[in-house]
Amino acid sequence: MDQHPSYSELAAFLPNYPRAAGALFQTFNDLKLAQQWTDLEVVDLASCSRGALRGRRPRTEEVLCVIPCSLSESLSLAWLQDAFHELESPSQIYLAINTEDSSIVYYKISPGIVKPPV
């Protein structure tokens, strides 16, 4: 991992949260290289014991927040509330669920009860 070109951008966060390092590394590279997000930055989520990502999809101005995690992790409502609070209450966050076969599924999470679009 430390030989990969993107490691230098994540080096400050990966050693701090070794249990979440793989998910952060994989999600960062997916967003930056495959999905070509811009202005991608790592945010320290100390209460969630991990780094999160903030950036923009191509050709958009909206800044989105992504929290990488593993499929094997257990998450709670309190954990999600802490994440929303530390990310300064965005209208939504995306959970990037990483699996052992390197696939990632993104789930959009909103605070409270949100009616789905018709």
Rank of each mutant, 00 (worst) to 15 (best):
D2R: 15
D2L: 12
Q3I: 00
H4R: 07
S8Q: 12
S8G: 10
S8K: 13
S8F: 03
L10T: 06
A12R: 11
F13Y: 13
F13W: 13
L14D: 09
L14A: 11
L14K: 09
L14C: 13
P15Y: 05
N16Q: 12
P18R: 03
R19S: 04
L24M: 08
F25M: 05
F28E: 03
F28P: 08
F28V: 05
F28I: 02
N29S: 03
D30A: 11
L33Q: 13
L33V: 07
A34H: 11
A34M: 04
Q35R: 15
Q35P: 09
W37G: 11
W37Q: 08
W37N: 10
T38V: 04
D39A: 14
D39C: 13
D39N: 15
D39R: 14
L40K: 09
E41K: 14
E41C: 11
V42K: 09
V42G: 10
V43K: 12
V43D: 01
V43Y: 04
V43N: 07
L45F: 01
A46Y: 01
S47L: 03
C48W: 01
S49R: 10
R50K: 06
G51D: 00
L53F: 05
L53K: 07
R54C: 05
G55N: 05
G55Y: 03
R56N: 08
R57S: 09
R57P: 12
P58T: 00
R59T: 04
R59E: 05
R59F: 06
T60W: 06
T60R: 15
T60D: 10
T60F: 04
T60P: 13
E62N: 10
E62C: 14
V63A: 12
V63D: 07
V63S: 13
C65N: 12
V66A: 07
I67V: 15
I67S: 11
C69Q: 10
S70F: 03
L71K: 09
L71Q: 08
L71S: 11
S72I: 02
S72C: 06
S72V: 04
S72E: 04
E73K: 10
E73I: 02
S74W: 04
S76D: 11
S76G: 15
L77R: 15
L77Y: 11
L77P: 15
A78W: 03
W79S: 10
W79C: 13
L80K: 14
D82H: 15
D82P: 13
A83G: 14
F84A: 04
H85P: 00
L87C: 06
L87I: 00
E88S: 14
E88I: 01
S89M: 02
P90A: 01
S91E: 02
S91L: 00
Q92N: 11
Q92Y: 07
I93N: 14
Y94D: 04
L95N: 13
L95C: 13
A96C: 03
A96N: 06
I97G: 08
I97Y: 09
I97M: 13
N98A: 08
T99Q: 09
E100W: 06
S102N: 12
S103N: 14
I104K: 10
V105H: 11
V105S: 12
Y106W: 10
Y106T: 05
Y107Q: 14
Y107H: 15
Y107I: 12
Y107P: 14
I109P: 15
S110L: 01
P111R: 05
P111V: 00
P111I: 00
P111G: 02
P111A: 00
I113S: 15
V114M: 06
K115D: 03
P116F: 00
